[in-house]
Design a protein around this nucleic acid. Sequence first.
DNA 1: TCAAAAACATGATGCGCGTCATATTTTTTT
DNA 2: AAAAAAATATGACGCGCATCATGTTTTTGA
Lengths: 242, 242
Amino acid sequence: MSKRPSRSSSNRLSSSPTDELNHIPLLKILSNADRQRVLQDLTEQHYTKRDVIFREGDPTEYFHIVKEGTVKCVKSSPEGKECTLKMLMPGDLFCCDAAAFEGARHPGTAQPMGDVSILRMNKKSYFDMLRRNPEAAIEVIKHLGNRLNEAQEKAKVMALDRADQRLASLLVDLATKNGVKDPQGIKLPMRLTRQDMANMVGTTTETAIRIMSRFTRERLVSGTATRLIIRNLAGLKALASA
Amino acid sequence: MSKRPSRSSSNRLSSSPTDELNHIPLLKILSNADRQRVLQDLTEQHYTKRDVIFREGDPTEYFHIVKEGTVKCVKSSPEGKECTLKMLMPGDLFCCDAAAFEGARHPGTAQPMGDVSILRMNKKSYFDMLRRNPEAAIEVIKHLGNRLNEAQEKAKVMALDRADQRLASLLVDLATKNGVKDPQGIKLPMRLTRQDMANMVGTTTETAIRIMSRFTRERLVSGTATRLIIRNLAGLKALASA
DNA sequence: TCAAAAACATGATGCGCGTCATATTTTTTT
DNA sequence: AAAAAAATATGACGCGCATCATGTTTTTGA
């Protein structure tokens, strides 16, 4: 058991938790009857920190939904450098696309940022659901459209901005989309090291540390990985688009 | 008439060209009956070089398909710098996503690289078609999935590679996807200046020129904007992932 | 709780590439 | 065909950030 998931339990979603799943946009749309049917096909998986949900290059077998925790999508280069494309939060879909082709392979690796639970469904069930349910397909189209816009906005930032601006953009994004209120400002709900940030904005760990030190001096942020707080969102926004 | 389309004719697609449209994957899928119906709703638009098909921030009204020519998707920063996200070629769909929301706005500007013709359909007809036709919706999902993968692959390259490697990647991409055979090697079918390339890989015109000069010395490419030829694809590939 | 492993921090040095400047060549427009 | 506008070319200079090195603090896991 060299590098495979060290521990990933699997439970059938037998009984109750129709409610629990109701905050997932894709499932909300379905008719009650169809939702029942879909629940039959969904299974829940649990992963911990050093598991890998799937690896770049693996054949695509499932469609996934994040139920709890944070998952990161990573690509790596031949020389071992890696870049983090996206943090997935509860409710996010992934592999709603690649799985569409026969023999398709995962374009990146999916890795938990801590303990996570994932709902998944095999390709066939997933596409059958979409065929039965055009509104669900349109929901997936919306979701993919959003993801594409995000990716392209990020490409623009990467192309045009300095490292400190890219980092500021990242923090603004995370705070806006995932932040939770805190007496000090806005707290980021996931453990996020400076190396994680570096991988997300295409710079080195050292540079990310230097910039974050500066941000701390300037009272834009405070804290480190386990408790990172955005103290001056407006200031970061100003820097990001300066 | 300051900056609006200087000349864009519009024709109803009345009679024949069912054949002409058959090489567009999305339309190939439809039943004959439904295709007839869709043709009713499609109109053809013509644009020239300095027109703009739509501008960043404009409300989304239509779904588009490139029929002929090349279209570039551009985003620009407050300070006037711009970055080119993607070249769209005949058969490519665009705005198959953003249009999904009420009040959505275009995330970028679409601009012809020369004379182009575009097929378009208003939002409502488009989504009605998808609702009637789940296979078409799945086709759109596949397309968006591909676009997303491309965008993320590009993000990785932007994050990890040097300017010369990014430029090599770009040339490999264009040659592979759109190149046409030529006695000298592979010819790129669109006019592509070094500034265009710079905007696509996030560097300056001067740097793109220097790198292209080097590539020319090294017999990797030859020619300039109006007739650019890839002479050693393998060499470029090697450089791109070095 | 204690040791090992990560994460954070800070300095020195050098290269990649942005910036500005100026000139020539090619393409477009009238 | 001539004039205007773009595109290509090349040099000089300096800043941003990667790299390497070394030390301290925090977190993790047995």
